[in-house]
């Protein structure tokens, strides 16, 4: 059964067509990679799926409920069950808030609380900090006191706080050192498995997607040019574009 569905979704910015008639279905528990170059429409697509932007035409459904066109006050169900981790934790975490209050902020939203039957904030904070392997005393500190990898763990903890079904990660390891990248990928893989999450993972790095995702869509100029099982797409890419993306991944050459 699909949990997220987009039908003929298009979005223009001025005269520029960022998305052209995208059809997509994401099944419960699926780990979908979304790959493509800068400007291919990856981020525009996930914004529409997350109800953070509206399509010019087409429809988005979450769990059989229409998302597109709804006012924010009716999107409580989506805000609690779909969460995003952004690329750069330096800009996605408020530098003037303590980590504890950053992580529990989604739980203080009136609409999310309604969905979660007034979850105990402090208890949930402890739980998610443990889930992302951060010490309990992190809650009293500020984001600048943490390294890049730790900050991304904070962003992941915040996303997990409202117990979402779907986690969208938009280039979550692109601003990290290669060595830190491995730790965050391991963490994401564990969490997806343990919490039974559906994962949408946006990246320009196909090697990371191959590792983490069971299926993949390849985007170019606002369209999906290839889709299928990760193993299939990466071992037998059908389009030259996918082949070029795959070839561009740097590998150690000795």
């Amino acid at each position: 059964m699909s949990i997220l569905r987009a039908e003929a979704v298009s979005r223009c910015f001025g005269a520029f067509p960022a998305l052209r008639g995208i059809d997509l279905e994401v099944g419960l528990g699926q780990r979908l990679g979304i790959v493509g170059e800068s400007g291919a429409g990856k981020t525009t697509l996930i914004k529409l799926l997350a109800g953070l932007d509206q399509p010019d035409s087409g429809q988005v459904w979450f769990d059989q409920k229409i998302v597109s066109g709804r006012p924010e006050r009716d999107l409580g169900f989506l805000r609690s069950s779909l969460q995003i981790v952004f690329q750069d934790p330096r800009s996605s975490l408020n530098p003037r808030m303590r980590v504890g209050s950053i992580i529990t902020e989604p739980l203080r939203s009136k609409r999310v609380r309604r969905e979660l039957n007034d979850i105990d904030q402090r208890q949930r904070l402890g739980e998610v900090l443990k889930m992302v392997d951060l010490p309990a005393d992190s809650a009293d500190r500020y984001p600048h006191e943490f390294s890049g990898g730790q900050r991304q763990r904070i962003a992941i903890a915040r996303a997990l706080a409202p117990k979402p079904q779907v986690l969208i990660a938009d280039e979550p390891v692109s601003s990290l050192d290669v060595s830190v990248r491995a730790q965050v990928i391991n963490l994401l893989a564990d969490l997806v498995e343990r919490e039974g999450l559906t994962l949408l993972f946006v990246s320009h790095d196909l090697m990371v997607v191959r590792h983490l995702c069971d299926s993949v869509i390849v985007m170019r100029a606002g369209e999906i040019v290839e889709r299928g099982q990760s193993a299939e797409v990466f071992e037998h890419p059908q389009t030259d574009y996918t082949k070029a993306l795959w070839a561009a991944v740097p590998r150690i050459r000795v």
């Binding site: 060595s179 491995a182 730790q183 893989a189 191959r210 590792h211």
Partner: peptide
């Protein structure tokens, strides 16, 4: 050794835990 291991993502079977520094 740790840096080299983490950089060898292409040699890891998909889904397996990655080595870290």
């Amino acid at each position: 050794k740790g840096l080299v291991a983490t950089a060898r993502l292409d040699q890891m079977p998909p889904g397996e835990r990655l080595p870290t520094v």
